[in-house]
């Protein structure tokens, strides 16, 4: 497994640092800023995958990595692995549009899967509502909260290509636990069926979606309805 550490044209290196789906504490930001100042980092850049890259001279890279890890952050894994997870700030405390916990689910997915080896880079995006700010249909594995504790899952999308592809919906309104089980199944099938360096979406095009579909019991819709819907049902049952 490689790490996000690359030489740039100007001779400097970049270190790709991941937080909890883009979330960092003030203390971590201050720590990064202090390390950047101390180690001669001339610039910091936010990435599309909600990570932060820091430009650093080669002889200071090890010290910067140590500083990053001392802050509870880590250098993002790179190459043909599950990449850092993108998630929107959808949960009960943050984005008012959210229909479910996207941020917490994204962080849990990142914790469990990021760095696992796969035939080609594998990107996961989690969105808190169908507006999809994290572009879940442009990810290898896209998850969209749809209300209550239920999620839709799309498979095989990607954007970084001259021939981008939209993911295909494979599960509707499945419970949170099923998202992990579906992802386990998809990764197992992907490792077993894909050619070396073949994107999941291309493997789907070559072999058909059916080859990657999880068994029916993993696709059962969430049994617990949205509490607001339950409240509405009770309200409708009352006298006008």
């Amino acid at each position: 497994m490689g790490e996000g550490y690359f030489k740039q044209r100007n001779g400097l290196y970049v270190l790709d640092v991941m937080g909890a789906c883009g979330l960092m504490t003030g203390e971590q930001f201050r720590g990064l800023a202090a390390a950047a100042a101390e180690l001669g980092v001339p610039a910091v850049k936010l990435t599309t995958r909600q990570t932060v890259v820091l430009l650093v001279p080669e002889d200071k890279a090890a010290a910067l990595k140590a500083a990053v890890e001392s802050l509870g952050l880590r250098v993002a894994p790179y190459h043909n692995v599950v990449r850092p997870v993108m998630a929107c700030p959808g949960n009960k405390d943050l984005c008012p549009r959210a229909l479910g916990d996207a941020l917490g689910l994204g962080q849990a997915l990142q914790e469990r899967y990021t760095g696992q080896e796969v035939p080609k880079d594998f990107k996961i995006s989690v969105a808190g509502c169908p507006r999809g700010c994290t572009e879940p249909y442009c990810a290898d594995f896209g998850v969209v909260a749809v209300g209550g504790e239920a999620y839709d899952v799309a498979l095989g999308g990607f954007g970084g290509s001259s021939r981008p592809r939209h993911g295909q919906l494979i599960a509707r309104r499945v419970p949170r636990d099923a998202v992990f089980a579906i992802l386990d199944h998809v990764l197992e099938r992907y490792r077993a069926l894909a050619q070396p360096r073949e994107k999941l979406g291309r493997a789907v095009e070559r072999l058909g979606l059916e080859a990657f579909m999880p068994p029916a019991h993993l696709l059962r819709p969430a049994e617990e309805p949205d509490p607001v819907l339950l409240e509405l049902k009770a309200f409708l049952g009352g006298r006008e």
Partner: peptide
């Protein structure tokens, strides 16, 4: 009557979306 009750339900809550309500 259903539409009126749904409107009465959401007005005090200050929300616009009711996922799954269409099935009712």
């Amino acid at each position: 009557a259903f539409a009126r009750k749904v409107l009465a339900f959401v007005l005090p809550k200050g929300v616009l979306d009711l996922p799954g309500a269409a099935q009712l």
